[in-house]
Amino acid sequence: MIHGISEILPDQLSRRQDILLSIRKVFEASHFQAITTPTFEPIEALSKGWDQFLKTSSIQFISDEGTHMVLRPEMTSSIARLISSRKEQLKLPLQLYYMENVFRRKHQLRKQELFQIGCEVIGKDDLDIDIAILQLLVQVLHAVGVHDFKIELGHVEHIQQLSPADQEALRQGMIVNVSVIPPIGDASILPKGSYLARLATQWDQRFPHYKGLLQYNLGKVESIDYYTGIMFDVLIEGVGAVVGRGGRYNDLLSAYGWNEPAVGFAIEFDQLALFLEKENT
């Protein structure tokens, strides 16, 4: 038996495809186009924008021709590599979505094969588009029947104010070693004039019916460190792991030769499907 892969039988698959279809409708109604990328490719090309986490958690092998290959460990860098190499054929801004499997090295309870649903907006960098991405995430969750959730937001500008030791401790979850614990809460914890404070004001004005859906964490860090602006997680009460995450990564595409900003999110479909199956029984 191989650890960390999923086998899905027809009944379960049919339920999952219903969920995927309703998500696809949301993306397409917002004028996002589907994209796919090669499952594996030479690591030299794909890993240009990677941090240590992606390098050490990806599954690598040597091809028949002796090329060092890697199975894509996530879609964002894979898409960045693909579109940057074909930039002459593409028109900005690009609004892309995907539903694909990605692969990670075996680590304790984590799966080796994950199914991720996500989207990217490339070529736009302002508050409006960051809010639009969050709104899209809310619409996707509502469309599949998830209503009791929070989106927790952080921003790199708050993390950068912490000492390197505190940043590292937060990244490792070692709250015990953090000198001053950064607060988590509603918009009242946000420093005046900060990007998140402006985002919070706009959000509440535009979506009064989504009140209380966002929360803020001034110590938010992500295991993947290519984020340059907002970062966020989807939290559902009673689900032990984060169901989705995303953020802004304005420097990632330039690692692949296209100097364009980007923002996006990915949903861990296995976590989401598991939650929905439990809810509906």
Partner: peptide, 28 residues
């Protein structure tokens, strides 16, 4: 703790270092 079956847990640092679970370590 990692799976969220329990909210909090008491465990040795030895187990945390060995298992490297995705948890927040709050207090010694």
């Amino acid at each position: 703790v990692q799976q969220g079956i329990v909210d909090l847990g008491v465990t040795g640092l030895d187990m945390i270092r060995e298992e490297e679970p995705d948890v927040c370590v709050l207090r010694d």
